[in-house]
Every structure is written in structure tokens, then in C-alpha cells.
Amino acid sequence: MKTEDDNSNNGDSSSDASWPERNVNVVIAGLVIACIASLIAQFWWAPLFAEKHTEATHVETSHDDGSHDETAHDEHAHDKDSHDSTAHLHPAEFVIEEVFGFEAMFGFAAFVGVVFLGTGLRLIIMRDEDYYDS
């Protein structure tokens, strides 16, 4: 959200003098800080979630729930059957999500992968702009 805010503020404030053009690095720094903040947040929240989960029977657990290891997974499936109505509360249940920073790495890698695929695809399918007109 941070980047979103940063950029939209830029859009507003730079009607003649171009604020974002002069302050690209500020925007980037904001983004990097936001990235780090999101990692810290995960680090911060993970133990809290674990406690929550052990205290209550079924709180809104989530993917980075620390108490979920591979053995707990089966229990979890049990859980799901017995509380079918609350099962919708669980966003997703995969072991890999509990790896620290998984989504961060995944987002980065997927983005780069998609862009490189696109660049590769250009070799095959790119034609002149008026290809169909000629």
C-alpha cells in the first residue's frame, strides 16, 4: 500500500514541476522499506499466531501459523472436517507457506520469470506494427 500511496501523492503534487522525476530514489527507497517492513511483519506476527492457535480452539489461523508443521497438517485436516463452517476462515494450508519470506521470494521470482518469458516470446511473435495491414 505504501508504494501506492507514495505514487498517488506524487501524481497529485506534481502538476508542473515533476516531483517523481526528481525523486525516483525516494520512491524506490519507500518501496524497499515497505518490502523490509513486510518481512519484519511476518517475523513479528508468526509467534503471535502460534500462541493464538494454541490458546483458542480455532481462531482465524493462517498460512504462516508457526504451529503448523508437517505432522500438524493432518490434525489440521481433521479440524477442517469437524468445523466445516469455520473452515472457510483458513486462507490456505500448505507447508511451503510457513517458510519465512516464501511469498516475497515467490513474488519476485514469478515477476522476473514472467518478464523473461515475455522477452523470449517477443523473438517468436513480434512483427511490424502494420503487419496485418500490409
Partner: peptide
């Protein structure tokens, strides 16, 4: 009928990680 709850802390954090790091990838590229 649904009891779905999108704003669990972990879910929000995960989504931020995914999107912010994707944005970071853009800057990097």
C-alpha cells in the same frame, strides 16, 4: 452464505510480500 474473513493479519502480510516484492522486481529489472 459465507463466513470468509479476508483480513487475517497473516493473509494481509503475505499479500503485501507478494506484491511489494513483485514491484521490487520491476524496479530491479
Amino acid at each position: 452464505e459465507t463466513h470468509y474473513e479476508p483480513y487475517t493479519a497473516a493473509h494481509v502480510i503475505m499479500q503485501f510480500q507478494l506484491l511489494l516484492f513483485a514491484a521490487l522486481a520491476f524496479v530491479f529489472l
